[in-house]
């Protein structure tokens, strides 16, 4: 499956990354080469093979329902970007598609 400009632009939109035209151009070429190499996977017969999300022989890892104090608001907000804090809140521009 070759990758074209439109696909690169669409994926960048989904990933919320602004790309310059030059980047779109360059990535399209580079990713086509990578995807060509990746496409060879289609040759492998996996009809009877289950997928592995992990190699770990572990199941049912849980913790007790014990509340513990976390960070204070001050510590939580300390890393807010410039303009990203308003009192005890994080501040962002108006949320999309709201009313």
């Amino acid at each position: 499956m070759p990758i074209d400009r439109r696909t690169v632009v669409h994926a960048a939109d989904l990933a919320r990354i602004a790309l310059t035209d030059a980047e779109v151009e360059r990535f399209t070429g580079q990713l086509s080469v990578v995807l060509d190499a990746v496409a060879r996977l289609a040759e492998v017969d996996t009809s009877a093979i289950p997928p592995s999300a992990s190699t770990l022989p572990l199941r049912n890892v849980e913790r007790d329902d014990e509340p513990r104090p976390g960070l204070g608001a001050e510590e939580a907000l300390a890393n807010a970007p410039r303009g990203g804090r308003d009192g005890e809140f994080f501040r962002v521009q108006e949320v999309l598609q709201e009313r």
Binding site: R63, E66, P67, R68, P69, G70, L71, G72, A73, A76, L77, G87, E88, F89, F90
Partner: peptide, 17 residues
């Protein structure tokens, strides 16, 4: 392990990494 009793708590006081 942050407290789940969030309603009415001061903003960003029940948070962790």
């Amino acid at each position: 392990p942050c407290s789940a009793t969030w309603f009415g708590a001061p903003a960003n006081s029940l948070v962790c990494p």
